[in-house]
Amino acid sequence: MRNVGFNVVDAIRAAREAKGRFESFHDFLKKVPTQVANKRTVESLVKAGAFDSLGHTRRALVEIHEGAVEAAVKEKRAEENGDVGFDFDSLFEDHEKDAAPSPVPDRPEWAKRDKLAFEREMLGLYVSDHPLAGLEATLAKHASTSITDLMSSDATQDGDVATIAGLVTSVQHRVARQSGNQYGMIQVEDFSGEITVMFMGKAYQEFAPALQGDSIVVVRGRVSLRDDGMNLHAYSVFEPEVGQGDESGPVMISLPDVRATTETIQALGDVLIRHRGGTEVRLKLTKGRTARVFELPYPVAVSADFYGELKSLLGPNCLA
C-alpha cells in the first residue's frame, strides 16, 4: 500500500493487540506509536478506507487528519520526554484541549468516482466498489470480447480486429524520438483485466482530445503481438451512452435474411430460453435496404453473459 510499509502494519497490529480495538479515529492516533502517526501514512489509510468502520466519511477525516496527527504526536512526545512544563495555567489549558480533541466534522462522502480513484491510487485496485459496476450489460453490448479473453485466448492473432469497452485509467501523450510525430497511449480496464491502447498517426490526430482519464470508452483496434506482450492499435474510440446502467426497451437483434436458417433460429431460441426474463426481444431481418421486424416470444434478462452468447452465435454486430 502506498506510504504504508510492513513496519507500519506490524506496529498497528501490535497496538491493537496490546491496547484493544480502536474505538474512534482519535483513539487510533492515541494508541498507535509515533511511527504510525505520520501525516502521509494516515492520509493514505483514510483514502484506502481503513477507517470506514469508525463512522466517519473519508472526506471528513482527510480534512482534519493533519491537525489531529500534530496534536497526537505532540502528546506522545511530551509523554516520552516526561515534559510537564512550568506554566501551570497553560499546562491545565493544554491538558483540557488534549482531553477533548476536536470532533470530526459531518461531511458528505466524496463522489463515487473520486472515492474509487483514491482507492486505486493507494492500493492499486478498487475495494469498496468498481467504477463500472452496473454497466456490465451496457458495455458488453458494445464490446466484441473482454480484455482478459482477448489477451489470454490462444486464438488471438497479430492483426486481429477487436472491440473492447472499459474505463480509461491512465493517459499519456508522447512524441516519437526519431520521427517527431505525436502519439497517445492509454490504459483501458474492464471487469476482467487491463490493456494498453496506442493511438498513432491519423487515429491520434482525430481522437487525441477524446483521450481523458476516468472516461468510459469503446475502442476498436488492431491487435499487436510483440515479445513484450500484447497491445491494441486503435482505429476509433467513442464514449457510449451509459446513463445509470439500466437497459430499458426491447433488445433488437439484427440478422441478414440469408443467415436466418432453421438451425440458426433454433439456436437463437435456445439462447433466449436460457436467459429468460422480463425484457422483450425483437429480431430484425435485413435484405438490402429493406428490413422486417419480428417480436420473439421469449423475453430475456439482459446481462453481459446474454450479450456474449448472442455475439458468439450471430457475430459481434448482431445488436442493433
Rank of each mutant, 00 (worst) to 15 (best):
F6I: 15
N7G: 10
I12G: 04
A14Y: 06
A15I: 08
R16H: 04
F28D: 00
L29A: 03
K31M: 01
V36P: 01
A37Y: 01
N38C: 09
R40V: 05
T41M: 02
T41I: 09
V42Y: 02
V42M: 01
S44R: 13
L45Y: 01
V46H: 01
A48S: 08
A48P: 14
A48M: 05
G49C: 03
D52F: 02
D52H: 09
S53D: 04
R58N: 07
L61F: 09
V62I: 13
V62L: 14
I64Q: 05
E66K: 14
A72S: 05
E75G: 14
R77Q: 11
E80F: 08
G82E: 13
F86P: 05
F86R: 12
F88S: 12
D89Q: 14
D89G: 14
A100K: 13
S102L: 13
P108K: 13
P108S: 10
R113Q: 14
K115C: 11
L116S: 04
A117D: 09
A117I: 09
E119V: 03
M122A: 07
L123C: 09
L125P: 00
Y126W: 06
V127Q: 06
L135E: 07
L135C: 11
L135H: 03
A137M: 08
T138N: 02
A140K: 04
T145G: 06
D149C: 04
L150A: 06
L150Y: 00
S152A: 15
D154N: 14
T156E: 00
T156W: 07
Q157M: 12
D158N: 05
D158Q: 03
G159W: 01
G159E: 07
D160E: 00
V161D: 02
A162E: 11
T163M: 04
R174M: 10
S179F: 08
Q182L: 08
Q182V: 07
Y183R: 15
G184C: 06
M185D: 04
Q187S: 11
E189Q: 07
M200Y: 14
Y204A: 06
Y204Q: 04
A208S: 12
A208C: 10
D214A: 05
V217Y: 04
D227E: 07
D228N: 14
E239P: 00
E241S: 07
G243P: 00
G243K: 08
D246F: 10
E247S: 14
S248N: 12
P250E: 11
V251K: 09
S254R: 15
S254H: 15
D257P: 15
D257N: 11
V258P: 02
A260T: 12
A260Q: 09
A260I: 12
T264Y: 02
G269S: 08
V271K: 15
G278P: 02
E280I: 13
V281L: 06
K284Q: 12
L285C: 08
K287L: 15
G288S: 07
R289V: 11
F294D: 10
E295M: 13
P297Y: 01
Y298H: 15
S303H: 01
D305N: 10
D305G: 09
Y307G: 00
Y307L: 03
G308N: 07
L310W: 09
K311S: 05
K311A: 02
C318D: 11
C318A: 10
L319R: 08
